[in-house]
Amino acid sequence: MKKLIGIVAAFLLMASTALADTTIKVDGSTTVLPIMQKVVEAYMKAHPDVKISVSGGGSGNGIKALIDGATDIAMASRAMEQKEIDLAKTKNVAANQIVCAIDAIVPVVNPANKLSEITLAQLKDLYMGKITTWKDLGGDGPVVVISRDTSSGTYETWEGLVMKKERVFPGALMQASSGAVVQAVSKNKNAMGYVGIGYLDASTKALKVDGIEATAENAKSKKFPISRDLYLYTNGAPAGAVKGLVDFLLGAEGQKLVKEAGFVPLN
């Protein structure tokens, strides 16, 4: 009997280990989230033995989770900073960067707004609080500035490419996700926000920047001035079930899903 119990216990241990090997946790950027949700749904349908959980708490939170060993894949809409890479090394985490898609951060206004284009200089002035009324841009009414929060990779990219390292002024209304920005702008005729290209829909109006439209072609060529790569980060080169998921995303079917999510595939 004891021998039988031992065999059963060993079997259960092996089964639980096998389950752990096929459980993947993904965390991070709310910009990359729609892509990953589509990819995970398709991948789990084809691989029912693999269990994947996906959550979007922002690029900074995803990278922190990777460094702390709390996630297998970090989604990020900005590159890891050197201080993050150095911190990862102190915890024996070798941050491995994978470009998974291309994006454009697009200024958006309420559809009732007559504005159709804007300059980088004007965007900077708006987000520094120097421009406070739409009258300065040919419109009417006060400007309600909507921004992503500081844990967001989209915020950090905006800060680098638009603000030129200047901080967004304290009067901006900070939102925890791109979806929240869309909702806020769609409900306020005086609002101005910015979102990834995959979040554009009829509830907001996209603006040209310096006369250039945010198209897939212009994002890929980086002609659109607020274009960027989207990333996944793993601890070292992907292996096992994680490699299977990453390879699927980078393959033809996964890149097709990138396009379906509204973002720009790599090729």
Rank of each mutant, 00 (worst) to 15 (best):
I118S: 10
A214H: 02
V195Y: 08
A95D: 06
I98Y: 05
V93G: 04
T132Q: 14
A216S: 11
S177R: 08
G211D: 08
L161P: 01
L137K: 04
V182M: 09
E217G: 00
S151Y: 15
D125G: 00
G193C: 12
T154Y: 03
T157Y: 03
K220N: 05
K189R: 12
G129T: 07
Q122A: 10
I226W: 00
A176N: 13
K164Q: 15
P107S: 05
G138V: 12
M128Q: 15
E159L: 11
A95T: 13
A104E: 04
L173W: 00
G193H: 09
G129V: 06
K89W: 04
S186N: 05
S152H: 08
K164W: 04
K222L: 15
V185P: 06
D210N: 14
T132R: 13
L137M: 14
K135W: 01
A180Y: 03
K205T: 05
S186Q: 05
K114C: 01
I212L: 07
L173I: 14
N110K: 07
K165H: 11
V109W: 08
F224H: 02
P107Q: 06
K222H: 15
S147R: 06
D210S: 00
V93N: 07
A219C: 09
I105S: 00
N113V: 04
I98D: 02
R228S: 12
V182Q: 10
L115N: 07
G141V: 05
Y233W: 14
A104F: 01
A176K: 14
G139P: 02
Q97W: 09
T119Y: 11
V162A: 05
I102E: 13
N92H: 12
A180H: 06
V99H: 11
A176F: 10
L137V: 07
K223A: 12
S151P: 06
K220T: 03
P107C: 04
A172H: 09
P142L: 13
K220A: 13
I212H: 05
L200G: 04
D210C: 02
Y194H: 12
I197N: 05
